[in-house]
Amino acid sequence: MTRSRFRLDTDVLARVAGAASIVILLAVVEILLRTGMLNVYVMPLPSAVLGSFGRLFMEEHLLRRFLLTFAEALAAGLLVAVVGVAVGAALYRWKLLRAAIETWVAAFAAAPLVLAYPLFMVIFGRSALTIIMLGFLAGIAPVILKTVEGLAGVRPTLLNVGRAFKLNGRALFWKVQFPAAVPTIFVGIRLSLIFSLINVVGLEFLINFGGLGQLINELAEQYDLPGTFAAICFVVIVSVVFFVAVERLERWLRPT
């Protein structure tokens, strides 16, 4: 009883401390700016950033832009997960294919794909589809690599249990191998979503199309520093929502 209360207390304490550290950091920045130790033309006042939220909602359709960026990132993320796991499973299944292209996939992960955006614009036009496709391709590699790693790393004993129960190949995959690999696959999905989101927002910014990225671009061009930082805060919120959603999904798929 006392022990569980103690644990609850530390949990609450951690959250309070986490929130407090952000408030303190912002307060310090505010003080440094107001005392002139930091330049207000480089860094906006945190209070001004908070104050600009209302204006962005009213004048810049912040909610609509937020939802658009969210939808693009979600589409890219779903494509990444579905295609990435499928390609990863294929690479695991066909050893020759894996030997042939796994290194290329790894190299692909490091490529600054966003620089190829003109090509995507030629193919898909200046549209959300361009943004989704680039976000998808930029994020695909980690899921593929982690899927291969996860499936290959399943303990042989677990597979033998399945075999001893006379599972055929397909049942063995879906009932034993895949669930056993889920934690590793989700490490890949989390990494991939980060890459995808960065590229989605980055491309919105670059081609001046769509949601939050475009808003950041416009506000920056207007030298509206508080507005720019406020829009960046919303990108962070998108990423937090994704992180929490993926965590929930993983717990649902593989409770431990």
Binding site: T157, V161, F165, K166, L167, P179, A180, R254
Partner: peptide, 24 residues
């Protein structure tokens, strides 16, 4: 078969582990 190494499925509860061959 019962194996020497740890062989329960960590993603299944005790009852779903035991029910596994019946599920199949």
């Amino acid at each position: 078969m019962v194996f020497q190494e740890e062989s329960t499925f960590p993603w299944r509860t005790v009852i779903d582990n035991v029910a596994f061959p019946l599920e199949i």
